[in-house]
Computed example of a mutant assay.
Amino acid sequence: MEIELKTVEENKVASISHVGPVEEMSELISELTRWVIEKGLQITQPPFVAYYTSPMEVSPEKMEYEVGIPFKGSTDGDVKVKIKIMPKHKTISTIFKGPYSEIGPIYAEMMQHTMKRKYEIIGAPREVYLNNPCDVPENELLTEVIFPVIDLGNCENPENVNIAENPEITIEEDSYTISPIGYAKRNGMNAFLEINNKYVHGLKELDNFSHVMVLWLADKIENTGYPNILQMYPPYALDKLTGVFATRAEYRPNPIAVTTCKILDVNEEKGTITVANLDAIDGTPIIDLKPYMPSFDRVKEPKIPKWLSFLWPEWVH
């Protein structure tokens, strides 16, 4: 299997979000194709589906995904069809030939590739359907599997960051000491937090929450000059000039990151928390944990730029 690192250019996309079995996808693609044609728009690329949940984590009826068709032209969306922007970003991708039902192992191989090459996945995986199941037999179907990524292997080299401005900033004399409470650990595709013995008692009752906010230190880039960067083209939108405080990129005045993770298991005796959706690499220092509380941490009508709308879903379950 050949896996390529590529740059995807910005595209305008018509999309339909859906929760339900993946077998309903083909009907949604047909519906969206008719909508685009009726609007007099030019379809520029094959249809794709971005998957926001995994069949390994949820039941078929709770699968959350979004069907998209890139196009040229001008139009507004409606109640069901939304117009979004797929930003310029880097991906790894491979072509799978065969029935859709046999594509699962490709994802495992792609995950292994990301860990081996030190890539970080920065958005939802997607499948591009390069031919039509009505036109070819199952064993001739072609599907491009795509993971949006950044290259963590080059994170210590400032020249690999697309910097727009790098003004001289005088570092203040005041300083503070932060002591890790534990470290992120990875075992294949599984992630967990290993808490230091002296902090283990702080885990009491955490297992009664569904999610935890993990504050971690991006220590691999702590001393590389990134504190001076105020504007950049973030890795998930390579053509968007963004102030550091309007991006989630790790290149910050203080290299502190936060990820809200689903709690899968809490073992107070061993001092471990098994989590999903953790984007910290193996060995990353954990500096604090806070339980996710909807009344404080969720807003009713959030707004994000259109060019972020395909990399992450509105809600993560």
Rank of each mutant, 00 (worst) to 15 (best):
V49W: 04
A50P: 02
Y51Q: 05
T53C: 05
T53A: 04
T53G: 07
S54F: 02
S54T: 02
P55G: 13
P55E: 13
P55M: 12
E57L: 03
P60Y: 12
M63D: 04
E64G: 03
E64N: 11
E64L: 02
Y65T: 08
E66Y: 08
V67A: 06
G68R: 12
P70C: 13
F71E: 03
F71C: 10
K72H: 13
K72I: 07
G73P: 10
S74G: 07
T75Y: 03
T75S: 15
D76Q: 15
D76E: 15
D76V: 14
D76A: 15
G77W: 12
G77F: 11
G77C: 08
V79C: 02
V81F: 13
I83E: 04
I83V: 15
K84L: 15
I85H: 13
M86Q: 15
M86L: 15
M86W: 06
P87V: 14
K88Y: 13
K88I: 10
H89E: 15
H89V: 14
H89W: 14
I92S: 04
G98E: 07
S101I: 02
Y107C: 09
A108H: 09
E109M: 13
E109G: 04
M111Y: 14
Q112I: 03
T114D: 02
T114Y: 07
M115C: 01
K116C: 01
R117F: 02
K118T: 09
K118R: 13
Y119M: 10
Y119N: 09
E120M: 11
I122V: 14
A124Y: 06
P125F: 03
R126E: 12
E127L: 02
E127I: 00
V128H: 06
Y129V: 11
